[in-house]
Amino acid sequence: MENFAQISKQRWTSGFIGLSAALMAVLCANIFLGSVKIDFSQALHIIMSGDDASTLGTILWKIRIPRALASAMGGAYLAIAGLLLQVYFRNPVVGPYILGISSGATLMVSVVMLTSLQLGLTQIAPYLTTLAAFAGAYGAMMLVLAAAAKIRQGVTLLILGLMIGYLCHAVTSILVAFAEKEQVKGFVLWQLGSFSGFHQSEIYILFFGGGAVAFGVYLLSKPLNAFLLGEEYAASMGVNIRLFRILILLAACALAGMVTGMAGPVAFIGLAVPHMARLVFRTSDNNVLAPGAALLGAVVTGVCDLLARLLFSPVELPISAITAFFGAPIVIGLLLRRRVVS
């Protein structure tokens, strides 16, 4: 028994070390590689000196570093949100967008991007899309939380989330039908997500706000584990179900909403990374899985963003295209080999 536990512990430790190293490597790659070639030594010098005034300095400090950090944090938070909802709904095909968060964000963004509403708001125009996405994502979250306080069954909530999604899509489609071609292209690209153009303030929000929520999730890993047995067993083991349900949904929506607001909907990460983490760590113990999925999400998203930038450089691909195109076959392959679903 001890021996067995030790083997698991070793696997976990090596998993964490390996993933941390991979994350460092991906961050470096994202900073040093790009369409504009910068010498390694030169880049190192610019970073060390903190020079952000020169052209290369601007590229590194204002573009690449924020983007590398944003993709890592965004991926980590989406993975955590996905893990939370998969545990809560006890359903392996659930992702962070199942509750209508991306649909809500998309709806609000379509309103500002596809109508002439923005004409009167030139003052906040640069932030308008982000603000709209936030409003949409958290609006959908409020709806879901209000419903969760009344609805007892998880499945009902799931269906409600899907319905909210369909409703939002319906309105979005109508707006698309009436919109002009140019606007539609911009909107479609937004829908596929991108980690480009993150402001420093957004990075801070992601780091401190998201970090706090993610740490909170880690603290919830004990009741999360109890939840793996289902709501009734969790209740019978002393979990305060009502409080806990609200906390899970709040944390998942807050994380997914934050990332969606800033980067747009990023497909696949939230759904697939928890599965990949289970395969890497070979456990469903959320004490291990929550940090594990976060690290893995950061690595996977970082790699995908790197590919999105470099594959057809200087043309940049939408991040969702890469995550799904390369990620889905990997997950299918892993699942077929190990037959681990939940």
Partner: peptide
């Protein structure tokens, strides 16, 4: 119950829930 990837020992340990500390 379908708790996912757990050994029997880990699964039974879940029953210690009311006795363990904050992080389980």
């Amino acid at each position: 119950v379908n708790p996912g990837v757990f050994s029997v020992f880990e699964f039974v340990s879940l029953g210690r829930h009311p006795h363990t500390g904050f992080m389980g």
